[in-house]
Amino acid sequence: MREMLRLFVVVTLFGAISGGILAGVRAGTQERIEYQQIKFVKGPAILQIMKGCTNDPLTTRFKIKDGKEERAFFVGVFDGKPNTVAFEATGKGYGGEIPIIIAVNMDNDQIVGVGVTTHRETPGVGARVQTDPKFTSQFKGQSIKEPFKVKGDGGKIDAISGATVSSRGVTGAVVSSGEIYNRLKSNIVEKMKSIKS
C-alpha cells in the first residue's frame, strides 16, 4: 500500500511541476507568438493595403471586445495623423470562410484597401480574389457604409469571371466589415485618441 501511494505521489508531482513550468513558459512567450502570427499571417496583407503609412501598423494595435469575440485593430499613420484602421472580417466563399483585412479612413469612412489573407479557394480560379489587384481595388475609395453586391446580384462590383462565389464571398466580407465598423466606431475613436502620431 505504501509503495502504491509513493507511485501516485511521484507521478502526480511530475505532472504538476511540468504543468507549472509550461504555464510559465507560455505566459512568457505568448505576446511574442501573437506578434509572429500577426506578422507572418496577416502582416503582408496589412502592410500592402496600408502602403505609405509612416509607422509600423503591426505594433500599433489595440483590441476591442465585440460581443463574445475580441477584434484586433491596426492603426496606420498617414501625413502625421493616425487616421486609418485595419481589421479583419470574413465572408463565405467557395471553399469555406474567406478572411479579409480591410483598412478604413476614419475621417471620411472611405475604404483605403482590401486584402485577402488565408483562404481555401480553388487555386487559379477563386484564388484570384487574392492575387488579382484589379478585383480588390474596386472597393478602394468607396464608402464603407455602402451595401456592396456583385453585378450578377444587382450591385456594381465586377466579379472575377468563373469565380463568382469567391467574389461574392469577398464582397460579403466587405459588407460585414461595414457592420463591424458601424457597431464599434465609437469605441475605435475612443481608443485612437490614446495613440500618438
Binding site: V10, I21, V25, I33, Q36, Q37
Partner: peptide, 22 residues
C-alpha cells in the same frame, strides 16, 4: 515519468520556436 519530462522539454522547444523562428 520519462514521457512527462521529455514532453515538457518538447513543448518548451515548440513554444520557443513559435516565438523566435516562426
Amino acid at each position: 515519468c520519462f514521457i512527462v519530462v521529455v514532453a515538457t522539454f518538447v513543448i518548451v522547444v515548440e513554444l520557443l520556436m513559435q516565438a523566435y523562428t516562426y
